[in-house]
């Protein structure tokens, strides 16, 4: 394991990893600052829209000094890098004096609970139903109906699905109790179950809407695998149809699906903006959107770094556990 080839490989991977991080940090710094305007004026103009506060040059100047926004770009960049590498995400401008980590910690658990459960559930449903439809779709009519239904769900825009669900469960059948707020999540089982229950409506809308994608991709994958030679060989050996489907076809077609799942899970920290707006859900998507509108640099940087980190980790996990599923990669 410690052959010179491996060490070189490891070092090159590490170097690449560090380079990626540095580029991400720099881009996250530069791009929000390219937008004309500054966070202070943006915050004040949002306040003045309500006929409330009226900004003034004095407030803007004072707060610019406080956040170091009046210094030149290089100084700001270097202090930003130093801060991040020490693990300090900084203090939000628009929500001063709240720290970025507090703000993200308020929203992140909600996003994770909602998107991880709905992604996994829609993946499971989509994959299994897609497998059934792909394998038996030609023979049985009912599986073909499944495909039609999935295609329909895939095409209907998400916000329409969401609003239909709201109409159904708020206006018509009030199964879900009259709940408005979401509260905070701590690490007790009760709190997590409560959070799961509160996010059931948004989760339902996401599952219904995104199931179609997993269904269709699995169906085409299985259909491709079905035409392989080893399937024909298994049939010739006399194995039962269901055994062939699940032990031979499904396992092979599953690989790209698992990659897709892991990558999708990596992206959950970006939140689901439309869901959060329609259901007034306190997740990260809305936080990122709001901080971009307000040009709240520390929060934008904090969230983007979080997303990058999660996606990179997800990729890493995929690379590591792939050999478990695909013996061809084990070496």
């Amino acid at each position: 394991m410690s052959s010179p080839f491996f060490i070189k490989y490891f070092l090159s991977r590490l170097g690449f990893y560090i380079l990626t991080i540095w580029i991400t940090l720099t881009l996250t710094f530069i791009i929000p600052r390219l937008v004309p305007g500054d966070p202070i004026t943006a915050a004040l103009s949002m306040l003045s829209e309500a006929g409330a506060l009226r900004g003034s040059q004095e407030i803007v100047d004072e707060y610019k000094k406080l956040f170091g926004l009046d210094k030149d770009m290089m100084t700001q960049y270097l202090s930003y890098l130093g801060q991040i590498l020490r693990g300090n995400l900084g203090i939000s401008i628009t929500n001063f004096p709240s720290s970025v980590s507090t703000i993200i910690a308020t929203a992140l658990p909600w996003t994770i609970i909602l998107l991880s459960t709905s992604t996994i559930i829609s993946w499971i449903l989509g994959t299994f139903l897609g497998a059934l439809a792909g394998w038996r779709g030609i023979e049985k009519k009912r599986f073909e109906l499944l495909s039609v239904a999935a295609l329909l769900l895939y095409i209907i825009p998400y916000y329409i699905v969401a609003i239909l669900i709201l109409w159904l469960f708020i206006y018509t059948i009030p199964i879900f109790p009259r709940e408005t707020g979401y509260g905070s999540i701590n690490l007790t089982l009760e709190s997590i179950l409560d959070a799961l229950r509160k996010s059931s409506l948004p989760a339902l809308s996401i599952v219904i809407s995104s199931m179609g994608w997993w269904f269709l991709s699995m169906r085409s994958l299985i259909a491709t695998v079905k035409r392989e030679d080893f399937i024909l060989m298994a049939e010739a050996k006399g194995l039962k149809s269901s055994t062939i489907m699940w032990k031979y076809g499904f396992r092979n077609a599953l690989l790209p699906q698992i990659t897709g799942l892991t990558l999708a899970l990596g992206h959950i920290t970006a939140g689901a903006l439309v869901t959060e707006i329609i259901f007034a859900y306190p997740g990260i998507g809305w936080l990122l959107y709001q901080s971009i509108l307000q040009l709240d640099y520390p929060v934008i940087q904090g969230i983007v770094i979080l997303i990058t980190f999660t996606v990179a980790t997800a990729n890493f996990i995929v690379d590591t556990i792939y050999p478990l599923f695909d013996p061809r990669i084990r070496r």
Partner: peptide, 15 residues
């Protein structure tokens, strides 16, 4: 409205 940090109640601060 939505409050990124709902515990920020210092009315003297614009944030």
């Amino acid at each position: 409205a939505r409050f990124a940090d709902p515990e920020n109640w210092n009315i003297l601060l614009p944030t």
